[in-house]
Design a protein around this nucleic acid. Structure first.
Lengths: 205, 205
DNA sequence: TGGTCATCCATAACACCGTTCCGATACGCT
DNA sequence: AGCGTATCGGAACGGTGTTATGGATGACCA
């Protein structure tokens, strides 16, 4: 009926891509719709017809971040040893965060002001933790871990990886700190702390 | 020589106070210098003569946050039992964060875009963790904790409290989750994980 | 083929932001 | 009293996200 549409799927992907790059290179503050549109050779209207608003565009980045995150978590090889598997998942978590630090900030640190993930996005986020919960449920059922609600352990594990990673990303760790080794030792100590007392082997060295 | 100055210490405190309230009630995004000045019955110039810029004003809030934080940490009664003391400090950390969630966001989550704490502020922040490091150094020296660099353990402990608290503050925890009890259990499990194997008593129940 | 017209989108407008600049102000001093 | 000057409120500037608008466009039909 009218002129052919140029605000199409290809442009949508291009905008998402450039938005990620802008945030990665100059920080979340530097993501401006005018710059983004100019960079993609279009106008600010494109963002509104394709996404709805700036927070909605960020939400798309949020989802993309969790998609990559979930893939890395699900792709982590597991051994069946609960402690070692928790350490492995935690390392995958950190690797993922360091690979896309700007996405991590959007996902977990509310780095873009005024953005709150919508309900669907939150569900997707919750799903990412499934491998973690599966390991813990089994370890509790097998009597390897203490008989506390698996959710408690899962949140504790999530807490320590999230805490260490976000301290690292915001530059709050001491200078010259050996992050990689300390991170793994802390994960192992944390996981070992959930072992039942009679079970030996809580040696994080 | 000239008109009497009204951009004085009293106004400085009033601005800090109102700025904290604005962030607390409507989020960091709602902190606008125009609103703040109108609220305090002055002009935006006041912020520039008293603080220098908006990030500098936020830096003052950052310092105030760490002042309160440090007071709570230093005022936590300790027992001499390393695990229990780490749990107590962790609980004080959470209490402090929940008491001033907006300040916590400024201190640890970069919730105000474009703000980076200056060097002095970072030093003050580092000092807040001293009680934590003292406990750990002693527990390692006494052979209660594993023989790893105390810094490693300190960062691990900081990581888990920071992680759990920030997950709680950003609303990332599951609904109906028993935060208080799980938090304490997770802290106890984490601290117990650093105990030397022959030492018994790693029961986070 | 030429005209109509629904559709699409770049441009401009609006309200707000942080920051800078400047002129009116109001006191101490001569 | 009147000058000089430190002071500060308000206007100006360049930016932001968002919304309104009008010109461009190409499929349809006479």
């Amino acid at each position: 009926m009218a002129r052919p549409r140029t605000h199409d799927e290809a442009l949508r992907l291009k905008l998402l891509d450039r938005a990620g790059e802008l945030i990665a290179s100059d920080g979340p503050k530097a993501l401006s719709l005018r710059k983004l549109a100019a960079d993609a050779g279009t106008s600010t209207t494109a963002v509104y017809s394709l996404f709805g608003s700036k927070p909605d565009l960020v939400n798309a980045l949020y989802n993309e971040g969790f998609r990559r995150f979930g893939a890395r978590m699900a792709g982590t090889p597991l051994t069946g040893d609960a402690v070692e598997d928790l350490v492995a998942l935690g390392s995958a978590y950190r690797t993922s965060a360091l690979a896309d630090p700007h996405l991590y900030g959007i996902m977990f640190s509310r780095s873009v002001p005024g953005f709150e993930p919508n309900e669907d996005a939150e569900k997707l986020a919750r799903k990412t933790l499934e491998p973690l919960e599966r390991i813990i449920r089994r370890a509790v059922a097998d009597g390897v871990f203490l008989d506390v609600p698996p959710e408690t352990i899962a949140v504790g594990c999530w807490g320590i990886v999230h805490g260490l990673v976000s301290l690292e990303l915001t530059g709050n760790l001491p200078e010259g700190f050996d992050v990689t080794n300390s991170y793994e030792a802390a994960l192992r100590a944390n996981a070992s702390g959930w072992l039942r007392p009679q079970t030996s082997g809580n040696d994080p060295s």
